[in-house]
Nucleic acid binder design. Structure first.
Lengths: 363, 363
DNA sequence: CGCGGGCACTGAAATGGTTCAACGCTGCGG
DNA sequence: CCGCAGCGTTGAACCATTTCAGTGCCCGCG
C-alpha cells in the first residue's frame, strides 16, 4: 500500500535527531574543537583542514544548533521588536527598517504586538528574556515602566522607540514640532477653527502632537479652545477616523482645518467628510501625520508630516546592537529626528473667515 | 564612594550570569528535577513543594533559558514567517493574524522578508533551522523549490501561503476566481477594453489573477488582447501603480477598465490618472485586489476583491502548529478561500454602452 | 507483621556546542 | 644540539535544562 516514508530526508538522515558537530568531526577525522573553530574562527584553521571539515558539513547536512551555542556563549543573535499595533503603517515601515538592519547584522527578529495591552507586553518581555535575546526595541505602553529596568538589569539591551527616558537609549521624532508644523500650516492658510483628531491621548505620541498644535495656537495668541479635540478609539485606524468625521459634522460645524494624529485617521476623516457631502480641501482642510506611502499616491494626495520612519528603525536597531556589544561602557543616547511638513492637495486657503459650512447629507 | 554598581539589578543579582534552576533548587531546598517538574508538569508536584519552589523562583528572579530546554527537549516554541515584502498591507494583515494565533498558542514569531530574493530566502531558512523553529510559514519566491523539502526532511513543519503544492499544507485564496470576478464586474458595466496592472508576473499570485481575467474574457468570447497587460516593478507598490498610469495614458488610450494586482497598485494608478486629468470612475474604472483597510476609507472608496487575509494567517498558523505536533500521522491539507467582489466607488458603467469593439489589432 | 503498590521526590546522565589549557610539531636563533 | 616561540589541533570541562531509573515513605491488605 501507499505507506509513504514521509519524513525520510533526501540524504537518508533519520528525521528525529539532527547531525551533531561530533559526527562532523568523526567524518572529517578531526576533533570537536576544530569543527567549532571552523564555524566560529575560520582563519585560525589551516586551509586543508577547513576544507575537509566544510566538505563533511555539507555531506552530512549539518546545521548548527543555535540553542546549544547560546548555552555556553551568552546571547543568541536575535532581537525583539514590540510594537503597539503591527497593522499601523507606521510600525510596518519601522519594522521594515528594523528587519533590514537586523538582517545585515546577522540578527533574527522576533515580532511582537502589544496591542497597547500592558499584560501582553509583560508576557512578551518575559518570553523574549527566556529566549535570551540580545536586545529589545520597544514602544512601551507606559514608558515609565520598571519592567524595562528589570530587563536591562538582566543584561538585555533596550532601546525605546518614540518615547524618551534619560536612562535609556531612545530614538524618536520630535512630535511637538510635528504638531506645531501641522497647525501652523493651517493657520497660515487662514483657518481659525481647528480640530485635532486623535487616537487615545494616553499614548504619548498623540498627546505631544496635540501639545505642538497648542503651541502653534499660543504663538498666535489664540486660545486652546480654538482647537477642538476629537479622541476616538485607541489604535488610530481609518475606521476610527471615519467615526471622528461624524463627530466633527455633528458637534463642530465651525471647524475648517483638521490635524490628524496619523495618516490613517486622516484618510478616514476625509472619506467620512466626503460622504457627508463636505469637500476636501474646499470646505475643510485636512493634515495627516507620518507620510505613509499612500499619502502620496492617493486619489487626494495628503498634506502631512513626514518622519523618516524606516531610517528610524534602522538607527534604533544599530543602536541596540551596539549597546549589546559594548554592554558596560555604553553611553545612552537619545536620538531625535526632526519632522517635516509635506504640502499636497488636502489643504487649501480658507475661503472667508467664518463662512458657515453648508450641510448636505448624502446617503 | 561614587562607584556606580551600574548593572546590578534590583534584587542584587549579578549581571553576567543569570539564575539557574540549580540555584532555585538550592533556595527551595528541593532537587533539580523537582524544579523542572514545577515548571513543566506542575500537577505532579505536591502543593506544598510547588509553592515553595514558585516562591524561590520569584525571589531569585529566575527566568528559564529557552536554549537549554530546546537542547534536551526538541523544538523551541517559535515559528518563522517569511513574506515577500513586509511593507505590503496584505502581508501586514497576514502577519497580524499569524502573530495573534501564535501568541494564543504560546509561540513566538520570527519575522523575515525575502524581498523576493531567493538568496535571502535561503539564508533565512537556514538561520531559522539553526534556531530549530517548530515550523515555517512561507510565501516562497518559487514554490517548486526543494529547499522546502529539505526543511521538512529535517523535521520542521512547513505551510505554504498563497501557493499550492500537493505534498505540503497550504493556505491560499482562489486567485483565478478573484481575477475573474474583477474582470467580470468591469465587463458587466460595459467596459470592453481592459488593462491588468501588475507587479512581476514571475509571482504566481499575479499570474493567476491575470489568468482569471482572461477566463472572464473567454467566457464572453473576447480575445485575450482585449486586456492589455502592464507589468511594473516587482513589489506592487503605489509608486509602481503610478508609473503604470503613465503607460496606460501613453500607450493604451482606449482602455476604460483597469484591474490591478493589488490595492496599492490601484491607488497608485488612480492617483496617476487623476494627475493626468482623467477622472475615476467617470473616464476609467479601476478595480483593486486585497481589500486593505484603506480601500474602504479612502477619499475614493475602492472597488476591490476581498480576501480574508487575517483569517488566512490565523488558519495557516494553526495548521502549522498542528503539523508540528502530529508530525508523522499528518495529512497535508490545501485550504482554499473564496474571494469576494466588493463594489464601491471606483467603478462605474461605461459611458457608451455600445462601445465599438475593435477586433484584435496586433499585439 | 510482611508485602506490594503508588506517590513525591531525587540526582545522574544526556543534550550539542564553545572554550581553553595543554600538546606536538616545525623552524629558527644561539 | 638545545631552547623557545608560534601555529594548528586536541579533548575535557562546562553551560542550563530535561528525563528517567531509582529511592524512600506511607498505606492498605492479607
Amino acid at each position: 500500500m501507499a505507506v509513504r516514508k514521509a519524513k525520510t530526508s533526501v540524504n537518508g538522515v533519520p528525521p528525529g535527531r539532527s547531525v551533531t558537530i561530533k559526527e562532523v568531526a568523526a567524518a572529517a577525522e578531526v576533533s570537536l574543537g576544530t569543527v567549532s573553530n571552523v564555524l566560529n574562527r575560520p582563519n585560525m584553521v589551516s586551509d586543508e583542514t577547513r576544507l575537509k571539515v566544510l566538505e563533511a558539513i555539507d555531506r552530512l547536512g549539518f546545521v548548527r544548533n543555535a540553542g546549544a551555542s547560546l548555552l555556553r556563549g551568552g546571547r543568541a543573535r536575535t532581537i525583539g521588536l514590540i510594537t503597539l499595533d503591527v497593522r499601523n503603517p507606521f510600525f510596518t515601515e519601522l519594522a521594515h527598517g528594523v528587519e533590514d538592519a537586523a538582517r545585515d547584522a546577522g540578527y533574527l527578529l522576533f515580532l511582537c504586538s502589544s496591542d497597547e495591552d500592558r499584560a501582553k507586553e509583560k508576557r512578551y518581555l518575559e518570553v523574549l528574556e527566556e529566549q535570551r535575546v540580545n536586545g529589545v526595541l520597544i514602544s512601551p505602553v507606559n514608558e515609565r515602566d520598571n519592567l524595562l529596568q528589570w530587563l536591562r538589569g538582566r543584561g538585555t539591551a533596550v532601546v525605546l522607540l518614540g518615547r524618551e527616558r534619560r536612562d535609556f537609549c531612545s530614538v524618536r521624532v520630535d512630535d511637538m514640532t510635528g504638531g506645531e508644523l501641522a497647525a501652523e500650516h493651517l493657520l497660515d492658510l487662514g483657518h481659525r477653527r481647528l480640530a485635532f483628531v486623535t487616537a487615545s491621548l494616553a499614548i504619548d505620541q498623540y498627546r505631544i502632537r496635540l501639545a505642538g498644535v497648542r503651541r502653534a495656537l499660543a504663538r498666535r495668541e489664540l486660545p486652546d479652545d480654538a482647537c477642538e479635540v476629537v479622541e476616538v478609539g485607541s489604535l488610530g485606524t481609518a475606521a476610527e477616523g471615519r467615526a471622528a468625521s461624524d463627530v466633527l459634522v455633528a458637534d463642530h460645524p465651525e471647524v475648517t482645518g483638521v490635524v490628524c494624529g496619523n495618516d490613517l485617521l486622516a484618510f478616514g476623516v476625509i472619506a467620512g467628510l466626503v460622504r457627508h457631502g463636505i469637500r476636501v480641501p474646499d470646505d475643510i482642510s485636512v493634515v495627516g501625520y507620518d507620510d505613509i506611502e499612500l499619502a502620496q499616491q492617493s486619489p487626494l494626495p495628503l498634506t502631512t508630516i513626514r518622519q523618516p520612519t524606516q531610517e528610524l528603525g534602522r538607527i534604533a536597531t544599530n543602536l541596540l546592537i551596539e549597546e549589546g556589544q559594548r554592554a558596560a561602557a555604553h553611553a545612552h543616547q537619545q536620538i531625535v529626528f526632526q519632522p517635516e511638513l509635506v504640502v499636497r492637495d488636502s489643504t487649501k486657503r480658507a475661503r472667508r473667515s467664518s463662512t458657515p459650512r453648508r450641510r448636505a447629507p448624502q446617503r
